[in-house]
Each structure stands twice: as structure tokens, then as C-alpha cells.
Design a protein around this nucleic acid. Structure first.
Length: 492
RNA sequence: GGUCCUGUGGCCGAGUGGCUAGGCAAUGGUCUGCAAAACCAUGUACAGCGGUUCGAAUCCGCUCGGGACCUCCA
């Protein structure tokens, strides 16, 4: 069997090209993904990014890599606004809810953890918090100052972008030019402490109204927004690691500044492959908190979102998202969700059918090629839409085998079972609830009911047979009459 | 204004310089007592206008439309 680990291609935002993935240490991967800021409940757009990187994590694991997956939790509000405005989101939420910052963080972290379970996200290897790594952040800031790429003003520390760009390429990730940044219309206030527009805060002196304050060599204050990721990725993955992920909207300035901080402190780029997941849109526009066009991941499951007439399963939403490539924007609409729901159901049905198939001496089609197509799709920069198209091809085959229109050998059947399971459950992270829902009791009752109905049908008592079917349908059970007996399914 | 992405059949959504993406919907057929499901068949889709090429939806230019980033944002 081919070793698919050697031919994985990843689109690297740094080069703008798909590159063959080569880990720093053979078979081991360090991956860092920017997690949520816990000042409110993450919305569906936030979830899309987490779901996408969960898929990436899952596929890397499926390929047999040993992955250390670090996703941070931002539990410190940050004051990085270039206009010097108060933007401490967590402090603001705390005041609003009349609670301590830690209460806010704890509350939303609990919700976030619950969402992870609901949407079947694998837990990262570690979820470090910003506030738990203040010391590490301070140490990196000290290094940057030592290296001459930062300056201290009135108890605050700023990264010196102009100085940095004499030696390094500021803008290497986002394609921005320092000269162009200088021409920005936005001008520095007279009282601004920054020397240059693009300079950013590494440490910000405390304001009297700040609710979270830490000690530092420069006085009491707060860490800058970008430094926590540098501190935590360095601590858990080293100065250089393999993959760094996050939403497209973090590319600039957040990720650009992370690179600057790593180069400015350790003299090296933090990571080899930068991955950016695209946004979830509503009516063609980015879902965002400030726009107000967002809904919560729980609302859609409960059916309480005004945008949708009825609820959708988390697994259906996952499937819907997997039908689009992670680097494309995706518009979420009710019609699209309904279409996905039906497709998802077909796969779920085939998933069950697959377990019941019986083998023939020979296969009537190339099962190996079909299975390879799963890997080829995913190895091409995690192309889940193509994977799903190929899974639908497999679905047709499964159904055809079930109707004796195709044959499959015992060995091929084993292969198909293993891989179909792996790619739907383990890689795409779908869950098929039917089998779990149906209890022993229901199983036995249904067997009996269908047996009785079969007798009724044998007597050609169609009206009674149909009323049994209608009655079951009302109870949420679908009866499917096949060549050799009827089967049933729970309808959601 | 600067940087960049994008415009695919009724809807969603992949994609490569020439060979069927796929799903949903629709139509016809097979199967069925009927229905559902399943399977088979059916779409001359690539914003517009030029250009490069033997050949472009795929490369280049222009026009029009949509969006993202440049401020916190997944």
C-alpha cells in the first residue's frame, strides 16, 4: 500500500503555493491553531475555522503522523488599538455582565468546550491559556528589546517595525510593504507613544480601569495581543514547528506580527506552513460579531435561529461545511443545508448498508482505485469536497452491491469497510446516530412488526399493510420494502 | 485609496489548458401491489469583451458585479 504520508500537499500562505509537506522531524508534526477569545460565545463563523482545522488534525492523524496540536485560549483582553482606544474585550464583557474577568472566561470556556463536543471536535493535545503564560510572554519581549527590535515608552513596549524591516521582511506573509504602510492615511496622534504607524504593542501600561493587570519589568500592564501566540507556540512546539493555522482574517496583522516576534526574538521564522481557513458568509458577507449577522452554533441545532425555519443536526452542518474547500468562502443558507442534509442521509444509509453486504468471489470494479481516490483528494490540500464526491461514488457502488448489480470480493469488502468508515467518521468527523438511537427493544419490536406486515402483504391486504407503514411513518420510522424483505430506518 | 480574492448549469459547490466533479432539485426509465428508497439515463454551466493557443471556463488584458484585509475579528 502506498505511503500517502509522503505526498501530502498543503497550500502554504507564505509561498502562495501548494507544497509537498515535509515535517521537521519525520512522522511528527507540531501544529498551532489560533483559538477563541473568550469574551462571548463563539459564533458559527468561528466554529467553521475550528471545524476545518479539526479536519486537518484528523486527516494528519489518519495518515499516521504523531501530531501535537496546540490551540490556545485567549483569556486576556488586549489593548492594541492603534488609536489608543480601550479595546479590552474581556474587561468590557466583565463590566457588562458585572462579573470578574475570570468568571467571564470560565463561563465562555465551558460553553466552548460544550460546543466542541456537540460538533465532534477532537480535543487538541493542549489548550494553553494566555494568562497562564504571562511570564513566558515577558521573557520574549525582553529578548526582542535586547535584540533592538522594540522600545519602551511610559511603561509600554512597542515593536519597532522600521528597525525590524532593516534586517527582516515585515510583510512576508501578508504581502504588505512597510513603505506603503507608512503612506496610510491614518496618522499618529500627537500623544501616541508609537514611533511609527505600523509599530504594535508588546506590552501596554495598565489603565486605571483595567480589570486584569500583571506585573512586568516595565510596570503593571497587559500583554499585547500577538505575543501570547508566540509565547505559547514556542513553549509547546519549539522555536520552529510545522503548521500554523487560523482564520483568514488573522493573517494581518496577527500572524504577520507573530512572525516578526519570532524573528525578532529568536531570529527564525516560527513555522514552515501557514494555513488560513476562509470565512463563513451570510448573504455574501462575512459573518461577524460587529455586523450582527451571526448566529450561534447552538441556535442552529436547537432551531432557534431566526435565519432558519427548523433545526439541523451538528453532523449535517459539519457535512455541509466539508462540502466546501477550507480556503473558499462559504455561504450558509437554509436551502443549502437542506440539500446537504439529504446527501448526508444517503451517506449515512450507505454506511449501514455497507455493514450488511456479503462478499463474492471477485469484485466487479476497481475497489483499490476507489479507495485511492479518497486519499488523492485529501492529499491535495485537504480537498474535502472532492473526497465527498468520491464517497458518493462509493455510495453508489455500495447500493449497487446491495442490489446484486455489482460484486465485491471479501478482501475488497474489508478494505472498503475500513476506509469508508475512516473517511466519514475519523477524517470528516461525521457521526451517524441511527445505530446508536435504535435500542435492543426497538429492534425486536420492529422485527416483529415487519414480520406481521409481511404476512399481511402476503395476503394482499394492501390497505392494512399501508396503514401500518403510515402509522410507523408518523412515529418517525421509515419502512423500505426491498426484494428480500423490508428494512426500516429512523427518520429525523 | 492600497493589497488581494472571487463571479461555474434552477440552488450549493469542486476543478484541470483538450477527456463525466459531486450533492440537492427536475425529467424519463428499471424495480415495487402502490409508495418510498435504490439503480440507470438526461443538462451543450463556466459574468462580458478582446487576446495568446491547434484548442481556454482554466493563461493574459480590459469592463462590470461580489467579497476580504488595511481597526478587534475565526
Amino acid at each position: 500500500m502506498k505511503n500517502w504520508r509522503n505526498s501530502l500537499k498543503i497550500y502554504n500562505s507564505l509561498s502562495g503555493e501548494k507544497e509537498i509537506f515535509q515535517p521537521i522531524v519525520k512522522d511528527y508534526i507540531g501544529m498551532y491553531v489560533c483559538g477563541p477569545t473568550l469574551y462571548s460565545e463563539p459564533h458559527m463563523g468561528n466554529m467553521r475555522t475550528f471545524i476545518n482545522f479539526d479536519m486537518v488534525y484528523r486527516y494528519l492523524l489518519h495518515l499516521g503522523f504523531k501530531v501535537k496540536y496546540v490551540r490556545n485560549i485567549t483569556d486576556a483582553g488586549h489593548i492594541t488599538n492603534s488609536l489608543g482606544q480601550e479595546t479590552d474585550s474581556i474587561g468590557a464583557a466583565a463590566r457588562m455582565e458585572q462579573a470578574q474577568p475570570l468568571e467571564i472566561v470560565y463561563k465562555y470556556n465551558t460553553k466552548f468546550q460544550e460546543l466542541q463536543r456537540l460538533y465532534n471536535l477532537l480535543p487538541p493535545t493542549i489548550e494553553p491559556t494566555a494568562t497562564g503564560h504571562i511570564q513566558e510572554q515577558i521573557e520574549i519581549i525582553e529578548k526582542i528589546i535586547e535584540n533592538g527590535f522594540a522600545y519602551v515608552v511610559n511603561g509600554s513596549v512597542y515593536f519597532d517595525v522600521r528597525k525590524y524591516s532593516e534586517k527582516y521582511n515585515y510583510g512576508i506573509l501578508s504581502g504588505r510593504k512597510v513603505d506603503e504602510l507608512a503612506e496610510e492615511t491614518r496618522t499618529l496622534n500627537a500623544q501616541d507613544e508609537k514611533q511609527f504607524f505600523a509599530d504594535f504593542a508588546l506590552w501596554k501600561k495598565a489603565n486605571p480601569e483595567d480589570m486584569q493587570i500583571w506585573r512586568s519589568p516595565w510596570g503593571d500592564g497587559n500583554p499585547g495581543w500577538h505575543i501570547e501566540c508566540t509565547a505559547m507556540s514556542t513553549k509547546y512546539l519549539g522555536k520552529q514547528f510545522d503548521i500554523h493555522g487560523g482564520g483568514m482574517d488573522l493573517k494581518f496583522p496577527h500572524h504577520e506580527d507573530e512572525i516578526a516576534q519570532s524573528c525578532g526574538s529568536f531570529g527564525c521564522n516560527p513555522c514552515n506552513y501557514w494555513m488560513h481557513a476562509n470565512m463563513l458568509n451570510v448573504n455574501g458577507q462575512k459573518m461577524s460579531k460587529s455586523m450582527g449577522n451571526f448566529f450561534l452554533p447552538k441556535e442552529i441545532i436547537e432551531g432557534s435561529s431566526p435565519l432558519f425555519d427548523r433545526p439541523f443536526e451538528a453532523s449535517v452542518i459539519r457535512f455541509f461545511m466539508m462540502q466546501a474547500h477550507y480556503r473558499s468562502t462559504l455561504d450558509i443558507t437554509q436551502d443549502a443545508l437542506i440539500a446537504s442534509e439529504k446527501g448526508y442521509q444517503r451517506i449515512a444509509d450507505a454506511f449501514e448498508t455497507l455493514e450488511k453486504l456479503s462478499a463474492s468471489p471477485q469484485s466487479s470494479f476497481d475497489v483499490g482505485a476507489l479507495v485511492n481516490s479518497f486519499y488523492e483528494a485529501m492529499n491535495d490540500d485537504f480537498n474535502t469536497p472532492v473526497l465527498i464526491a468520491n464517497l458518493f461514488e462509493a455510495t453508489k457502488k455500495i447500493n449497487s452491491i446491495n442490489e446484486n448489480k455489482e460484486q465485491i470480493s471479501a478482501a475488497d469488502l474489508e478494505l472498503l469497510k475500513t476506509e469508508y468508515r475512516s473517511f466519514t467518521l475519523d477524517v470528516l468527523g461525521l457521526t451517524f446516530s441511527e445505530t446508536q438511537n435504535s435500542s435492543e427493544h426497538l429492534e425486536q419490536v420492529m422485527n416483529m412488526v415487519l414480520e406481521l406486515r409481511a404476512q399481511v402483504r402476503a395476503e394482499k391486504n394492501w390497505s392494512l399493510a399501508d396503514s401500518i407503514r403510515d402509522g410507523l411513518a408518523n412515529a418517525g420510522i421509515v419502512v423500505k420494502d426491498g426484494k428480500d424483505g423490508a428494512s426500516w430506518d429512523l427518520k429525523n
